[in-house]
């Protein structure tokens, strides 16, 4: 994908469809991580549909969802690509299904089991090393939560990725500023400025609006590529549904019928 071939209308349409599909699934289960899936919808969409080559099971590139609790967006994107089936998603979190709240390695399109935070980036480093060792040009994409940057293990991997000059890593931080007990900027003000910390660790960095699909694609396609890339994406938790935006309760809750109807109306309005 080049910047010139990027189609913003198509991206917007896909993302609205993904959010609608997640809302549909929310009516079948008691709870799911909507807020964190909606905050990284444009990022995951852009990775699969605008950045990875041949997205799907035959792609030379890899996407690892480090913030495993956001995997609803990965599931619906994989469904749209034909990697997962409609039946897979309809059976989400049921005894006869194979998809749970966190990604499970072995399911189609799921490259690693995540859900426990702070594991993803080290596995990404290992995957990037393997690509280099096997003389392949695969790019390893990943999305971390901002809360994950509080894990010491994440910084171990940050240190190694740049020390090993793994230029085939493209990482995003879904910087929605929320975690379970409050705003990250209030509980951990010293975490900021976030991009500067990755810059100090030897990464190439970019700061963008994480709901601007064009900006997401541009940050990756215009990278220098001499270091691993960390894109710090400003996002809104629950993006797209007014009552979910920046409301911590929507970290892990399914809307009732009225809330569901309102959410759909709001998404239609945005179309």
């Amino acid at each position: 994908m080049t910047q010139a071939s990027f189609d913003p209308k198509a991206a917007r349409s896909r993302c609205q469809g993904y959010r609608r599909r997640i809302l549909d699934i929310s009516q079948r289960v008691s709870a799911l991580h909507i807020g964190g899936a909606f905050s990284c919808t444009e990022i995951v969409d852009a990775i699969y549909n605008d950045l990875m080559r041949k997205p799907g099971l035959s792609s030379p590139d890899t996407f690892l969802m480090s913030k495993g609790h956001g995997c609803m967006i990965q599931y619906v994107v994989l469904e749209s690509l034909g990697v997962l089936t409609r039946a897979d998603l309809d059976a989400y979190c049921t005894p006869h299904g194979r998809l749970g709240v966190h990604p499970d390695y072995g399911n189609p399109g799921i490259e690693a089991s995540t859900g426990s935070l702070g594991h993803g980036l080290s596995m990404v480093v290992g995957m990037a090393l393997a690509e280099r060792g096997k003389r392949r040009d695969g790019v390893i994409y990943t999305v971390l939560s901002d809360g994950e940057t509080q894990e010491g293990s994440t910084w171990e991997a940050v240190l190694m990725a740049s020390s090993l000059k793994l230029t085939n890593i493209v990482a995003f931080i879904d910087n929605n500023d929320f975690q379970s007990l409050g705003r990250t900027s209030e509980t951990h003000p010293s975490l900021y400025p976030l991009a500067a910390k990755f810059d100090a660790f030897g990464w190439e960095t970019a700061e963008i609006d994480g709901h601007d699909s064009a900006a997401i694609v541009r940050a990756v396609t215009t990278r220098k590529g001499d270091r691993p890339l960390m894109v710090v994406a400003r996002t809104t938790k629950g993006k797209g549904v007014s009552y979910m935006e920046n409301a911590p309760i929507w970290h892990y809750r399914a809307p009732n019928k009225d809330e569901y109807a309102q959410a759909l109306r709001e998404l239609e309005t945005q179309a």
């Binding site: 490259e111 596995m123 990404v124 480093v125 290992g126 393997a130 096997k134 293990s153 991997a157």
Partner: peptide
């Protein structure tokens, strides 16, 4: 921690 995670990533790629 990264020693194990990196080893896992290597194994995930064969």
């Amino acid at each position: 921690q990264s020693m194990i995670g990196i080893a896992a990533g290597l194994a995930l790629k064969g």
